[in-house]
Design a protein around this nucleic acid. Structure first.
Lengths: 203, 203
DNA sequence: CAGCATAGTGAATCCGAATTCACATAGTCG
DNA sequence: CGACTATGTGAATTCGGATTCACTATGCTG
């Protein structure tokens, strides 16, 4: 494909930079108006190229979004990993993760909504599902450690993990949804969710 | 509109029956292949009429689905109400509701998926959101009673309610999703979810 | 500079639905 | 029966985007 990137790394070629700009444009549009706002026309316009150019860099619009989602999810995953590096018991780590997840979602509502819930495209949905699964596995692993350590009661770690993710998501939907109702204090929300999760795992 | 239904009730007119058949066809198709399978063509074919006929009964496909969703949600709401009529403490009622919700979803996976999660149409999504809100309020009300009665610890009932719904939903997604993984025992799943919820509310 | 590949252009095309509409047909009422 | 309304027909139209493509521009390499 791009024989030009053979420079191992160095300064990126024109094409590579356009590619980047398109990806960024997609993210921005997602933040601003969700998937509906992110048409090929809009993306390419913001990227400063004509519509057709997109197809020099991605086989389809869907594939572009797969990449967007993959990137963002990977980054979020990184943050969660960092958060869980906090010293302490498994429960402490769990709590750190929950808080990180909650607060980052609250600070970029529309994006979080788009990443986690908004109907996009079958291809992208699959990607999303896959990452959700990854989150779940991470959590489950942590839970298992907590159980072994006797910090948590015996339970189906996978199911609990899934439930936790669902609980956090749903609790956030109100605040996240473009159709926002009454705005509640962010800090209060985080604490409430954190408490709920602690109780839910049996801490 | 239908001056014919002036017979107060009696036997339904031809039109009314076609209307019913279309609604049923839509539900069936939803069960079988999700929203994707429920095109106007498919619905009308199954209903035994030509495509255009649909528009004699509904202003648009979306409106038809709004009605489908409303009906099903109303029915589910009814079942939950029945379930919560079980004698006992607020926690008992809560548990009954959780079990009812879980088991009914598991027995009609595809339909539950379509009703609860599958991206459909903005108009329908709004309807769905509204009912979710209703579920949430019901649950919250119950929780509040439990808190007052001292059966449950002090907490934000609304948030807990939302979290519970999210937890159940997500825990079911695996089993519900068309992309089913390993099949787990229905009974086990119900129990596990029930236990999780009890813990989560602080029972 | 010639030559070739990579990038970019943007109007035309495609595509898969929903929706419309001019024309039947069935039902009802006086 | 005759007229008038409710229903049904289904091919043609619409529609909103994604995608293509013949052509042009850019930039590197020898």
């Amino acid at each position: 494909m791009s024989s030009t990137r053979s420079k191992t790394s160095k300064r990126s070629s024109r094409g590579d930079r356009t590619r980047e700009r398109l990806l960024n444009a997609a993210v921005e549009l997602l933040e601003e108006g969700g998937y509906a706002a992110a048409s090929v026309a809009a993306i390419t316009e913001r990227g400063g190229v004509a519509a057709g150019a997109l197809y020099r860099h991605f086989p389809s619009k869907a594939e572009l979004f797969v990449e967007v989602f993959r990137t963002m999810a990977e980054s979020k995953l990184g943050h969660l990993r960092e958060a869980s590096a906090v010293p302490g018991t498994a429960v402490d780590k769990l709590d750190a993760i929950v808080r990180e997840f909650t607060s980052s979602s609250l600070s970029q509502p529309r994006l979080a909504w788009a990443l986690g819930y908004e109907p996009v495209d079958p291809l992208v949905d699959a990607e999303r599902l896959a990452y959700r699964q990854t989150y779940r596995e991470r959590l489950a692993e942590l839970l298992r450690r907590g159980i072994e350590a006797g910090e948590l009661p015996e339970q189906d770690a996978e199911l609990t993990a899934a439930s936790l993710i669902g609980a956090i998501s749903e609790a956030l939907v109100g605040p996240l949804s473009p159709v926002r109702g009454e705005r509640v204090s962010t800090e209060k929300t985080i604490v409430a969710i954190s408490v709920f999760c602690r109780r839910a795992v049996g801490a």
